[in-house]
Simulated scan of single mutants.
Amino acid sequence: MIRFAPLKVAAFLAAVAAAPMAMASPVCTKAPQAKWMTPAQMKGRIAKMGYRDVKVFQVSGSCYEIYAHTKDGKRAEVYFNPVNGAVVQNNVD
Rank of each mutant, 00 (worst) to 15 (best):
V88K: 02
K30Q: 13
Q58R: 12
V54F: 00
K43R: 07
Y67D: 15
P82D: 07
V83S: 00
A5Q: 12
A10Q: 10
W36Y: 05
K55E: 10
A5P: 09
S60R: 08
A15W: 05
A34M: 08
A68C: 02
A11R: 04
W36I: 03
R3V: 13
G44F: 00
G50W: 05
A76W: 11
V56T: 02
V27T: 15
G50A: 02
C63E: 11
S60Y: 07
R75E: 14
H69V: 10
T70H: 01
K48R: 10
V27R: 13
I2V: 12
I46H: 02
K8Y: 12
K8F: 11
K43Q: 07
S62C: 11
T29K: 02
V16I: 15
A11D: 10
A24E: 13
A31Y: 12
R52C: 03
A68T: 04
A18M: 11
K74L: 06
R45A: 12
N84G: 04
M23P: 04
K8G: 14
Q33D: 08
K43F: 11
G50R: 03
I66L: 03
K43P: 00
F12C: 10
A19Q: 14
A10K: 11
Q89D: 11
R52P: 06
Y67T: 15
Q33N: 05
W36H: 02
A19R: 15
V88G: 06
A14D: 11
R3A: 15
F12G: 15
M21E: 12
A15M: 07
P82T: 02
Y79R: 01
K43S: 10
P26W: 03
K71H: 08
Q33A: 09
M42C: 05
D53G: 00
N81V: 07
A31N: 09
A17W: 14
F12W: 09
A11H: 00
P32G: 09
F80C: 06
S62I: 13
Q41V: 08
R75Y: 15
L13M: 08
K35W: 09
I66E: 06
M49E: 06
N81F: 06
V54S: 00
R75W: 13
D53I: 06
K30T: 15
A14E: 14
A40F: 04
A17E: 12
T29R: 04
A31L: 10
V54P: 00
Q41I: 06
V27M: 15
A40K: 05
W36F: 05
T29G: 03
A17H: 11
K71Y: 04
G85M: 01
A19L: 15
S60F: 05
L13E: 10
M49C: 02
A22C: 10
Y51P: 00
K43A: 09
M42N: 00
G61P: 05
A47R: 04
Q58T: 14
H69W: 11
E65F: 10
T70I: 07
I66M: 00
V88M: 08
G44A: 08
A68N: 04
S25Q: 13
V9K: 10
A22G: 15
L13Q: 09
A10W: 09
I46A: 00
M23F: 12
V92H: 01
Y67H: 13
A22D: 14
S62R: 05
F4P: 05
W36M: 01
N81I: 05
C63Q: 10
L13R: 06
